[in-house]
Design a protein around this nucleic acid. Structure first.
Lengths: 151, 151
DNA sequence: CTATTTTGTTAACTCCGGTTAACATTATAT
DNA sequence: ATATAATGTTAACCGGAGTTAACAAAATAG
């Protein structure tokens, strides 16, 4: 099992892949606001956990497993972010920061409850929606998605 | 400045004082699910931060400063707990656990927003309420208070 | 094609929050 | 009053997550 901190790195790598087409140590360090050696440690660990493929000085790639987990993490982040931003009306940058922290700490059960609640609170309720953090994004969630990292 | 982890200890000590009339290392360790030496370290640190009075083998007491901070921490916990339990309808024990974690991570700004939101969500809205985490508990909050630790 | 800059890696270290093992002190039971 | 049990303390250690300093490799600019 991987730590919450490491999940953040994985998520960042997933986003970088989408944004840049590749994943570079320096970029990860920048996004995560840490040093390159820290990134290196994480790479080692994520590799051991079969979430990325990577050889020294070589290309970094998420495995299928890694992609799946990233998506789940992003899903959770989205929900919490939307809650802070659109339900609590926190200022955008603030909402992002809080979401980052809170998401890292919530159980799947709580995330799911929150997701359902956000649906309702934003009047996006859709009876056919059967949202679950471990499943694919539902159509309602799709509408509030932040998932397009390419722009 | 004290860490979030240490805040938990302080809060626990405040509650123990209310519940038992005194604060003992063993009791803290039990509540915090840690060992006694861990507690000792925390005591040392809280003392350095003037949040408790304490001499080796002596009585542990919160300072005025310590009490003030404890109340603030508890306030924050209450808000988050009530949100999980009464707004998201999480099962009680679960709500406690999540609240513990989430509260430790939220900024004052976010806690305040959440507090106001909880007011509204629970239809306890009171126009005269000017809730702020750094102030005394407002009357509305009073109603959903969990603050009576003596029973 | 070589010199230089950028990028990535390694090793040794720090800090935090916890641990175990051993010991000191205090409380209690007879 | 003393033996025993309970409680509290200390020292030495661990692992996670980060750091700096030094170096190796790769990319790039002339």
């Amino acid at each position: 099992m991987i730590s919450k901190s490491q999940e953040e790195y994985l998520k960042t790598m997933y986003i970088l892949q989408k944004q840049n087409g590749d994943i570079r140590v320096t970029d990860i360090a920048n996004k995560m606001e840490c040093t390159k050696p820290s990134v290196n440690k994480v790479l080692k660990n994520l590799k051991d956990n079969k979430l990325i493929n990577y050889e020294t000085y070589g290309k970094i790639e998420l495995t299928d497993e890694g992609i799946k987990l990233s998506k789940k993490i992003l899903e959770a982040y989205d929900i919490v972010y939307v809650f802070f931003k659109d339900v609590l009306n926190l200022e955008n940058e603030n909402a992002k920061k809080e979401a980052e922290k809170v998401k890292s700490v919530l159980s799947d059960v709580a995330i799911n409850k929150l997701a359902k609640y956000v649906h309702k609170a934003l009047d996006l309720n859709d009876l056919s929606c059967d949202y679950d953090i471990n499943n694919e994004r539902c159509r309602t969630c799709e509408r509030i998605s932040l998932r397009d990292f390419t722009k």
